[in-house]
Write a protein that binds this DNA or RNA. Structure first.
Length: 437
RNA sequence: GCCGCCGUAACGUAGCCUGGUUAGCGUACAGGCCUGUGGAGCCUGGAGGCCGGGUUCAAAUCCCGGCGGCGGCCCCA
């Protein structure tokens, strides 16, 4: 059988070679650092969940792209397409009685059957922060802060935060008795900037023209000057309490966020909705210059825990696209250089018992020094050549002379100087140079 | 799901238009010159036309289909 055509990873999925993984780790470490600083506890759930659980509230677009399959017993399962559903599952089951608020973090892989393109893969990584139990703007502000801190940590200095509150439009439509499914369709069409179709959707519901033109008016409100946009929006929504509350909430959040983090550009866009159906309040996405794809996205989902059968639990959160952040760093030359090579190349010359070399390597490693032993039986000259091309700072050579005297020869590969020393001396020398660099 | 460009060793490429030597080169890899001393150089070696079909005496080259990569739309992370 010819396996050649199967040697490449499946479409939209990638192999991460050391360099790729290094870049990913940079982002992951920044996320874990924020878990710690913001007191989020990391959790992990299975990649595979029951289809029903995942499909419950994710929205048409995501449902269409789920990897769904049956197990041998006929159960319908799926690979998780996003992280909120599994988190909410935990919160409504094992963490049901955990003290609120709950701060949970994750770094998982996700799967969507999309057409791959720039920054979009069928298997991708997200780092998520979920804050459950609070309905207050300070919770949303915390999520926004985390997103902003992540961008800053990764040296992605010039970025935009686009935000809205789905309560503005939903509030209006609910007050007129518009069916929730229709609301979902309207929001999703608006999100696609397909305002014409969105309006048609509403016209089909026998809403009066005045109401429809209100919605159309909201769609258009977008820009940097949030004060005037909010004022305009308020005059449109009139006495609709839910919408007013959403607008006020946005105002509070924007006032404070601008004060705390003046750097990002905040774009208020009331026609922006996001594809996931579970959002109930503030929503946002983060963009960086030179790359027109959302790097981080999130929002408030106050009804989801209830939907899963738990106690009513307001919640908010965000997910950072790890592969996309890696890409953003590349595009903006923000990828940090990998750390210097701090290793020792150990060469055991002919005639020396291997045990002598292995004892020395064991001792070095016990002291935290990485050692690579020559295992190809190369000539010394070839070995040193390889070690130098790989940028090893030190070579340790063990010949009969050294073995008999219980010593080692340490060669500095940069200066070319070498000395025969006791293991202790060599170790100290290596260690101090590694600590210095 | 739609659209565009593109598929030659691990990587970068030449040849393709105008079908015809053993598919060439560079890097990388392995070895030798050089088994107690490296980075250079020289030499040697392994490794390749995405898959399937068609046209033809003959296909990397021309045609069709599939698959894949990159990018765009849409959506999202």
């Amino acid at each position: 059988m010819n396996l050649k055509s199967f040697l490449k990873p499946y479409r939209g999925m990638r192999d991460y070679l050391p360099k790729d993984l290094y870049e990913r780790r940079v982002v992951e470490e920044a996320i874990r650092e924020l878990f710690k600083l913001y007191c989020y506890e990391e959790v992990e759930t299975p990649t595979v969940e029951y289809y029903e659980l995942l499909a419950a509230k994710v929205g048409e677009e995501t449902r269409r792209t789920m990897y769904v399959f049956k197990d041998l017993a006929g159960r319908t399962l799926a690979l998780r397409p996003e992280g909120t559903a599994p988190i909410v599952r935990l919160v409504t089951s094992k963490l049901k009685t955990a003290p609120k608020p709950l701060r949970l973090g994750y770094i998982w892989d996700f799967y969507r059957y999309d057409e791959p393109q720039r920054g979009r893969y069928r298997r991708f990584y997200q780092g998520g922060f979920e804050l459950l139990g609070s309905s207050k703007p300070e919770a949303d502000m915390e999520i926004l802060s985390i997103s902003i801190e992540l961008m800053k940590k990764l040296k992605l200095e010039k970025f935009q935060v686009k935000l809205s509150d789905v309560g503005v439009l939903r509030g209006l439509m609910s007050s007129w008795g518009v069916d929730e499914n229709v609301q979902n369709r309207v929001l999703s069409l608006a999100d696609k900037k397909n305002y014409v179709e969105a309006i048609k959707e509403l016209e089909a519901t026998n809403l009066d023209e005045a109401s429809i033109s209100k919605i159309a008016g909201i769609f258009k409100l977008k820009g940097l000057n949030y004060k005037s946009i909010l004022a305009e929006a308020k005059s449109i929504v009139g006495s609709c309490e839910h919408s007013i509350r959403s607008l006020e909430n946005l105002e509070v959040i924007l006032d404070y966020m601008r004060e705390i983090y003046p750097e990002p550009e905040y774009i208020l866009d009331l026609g922006f909705a996001r594809g996931l159906e579970y959002y109930t309040g503030m929503i946002f996405e983060v963009f960086v210059e030179n790359l027109d794809i959302a790097l981080i996205g999130g929002g408030r989902y106050d009804k989801l825990v209830e939907l899963y059968g738990g106690e009513p639990t307001p919640a908010t959160g965000c997910a950072a696209g790890i592969d996309r952040l890696v890409l953003a760093m590349r595009v903006n030359n923000a990828t940090p250089p990998p750390p210097p090579n701090r290793r020792v190349y150990l060469y055991i010359l002919d005639g020396v018992p291997l045990s002598y070399g292995f004892k020395i390597s064991t001792e070095l490693r016990a002291n935290g020094i990485p050692v690579e032993i020559e295992v190809m039986d190369r000539s010394l000259s070839k070995g040193l050549s390889t070690a130098s091309r790989k940028n090893y700072p030190y070579a340790l050579m063990l010949g009969l002379k050294e073995a008999e005297a219980g010593l080692v020869t340490l060669k500095n590969m940069f200066t070319g100087l070498q000395e025969t020393l006791t293991l202790r001396e060599a170790l100290n020398r290596i260690r101090s140079s590694f600590n210095a660099s």
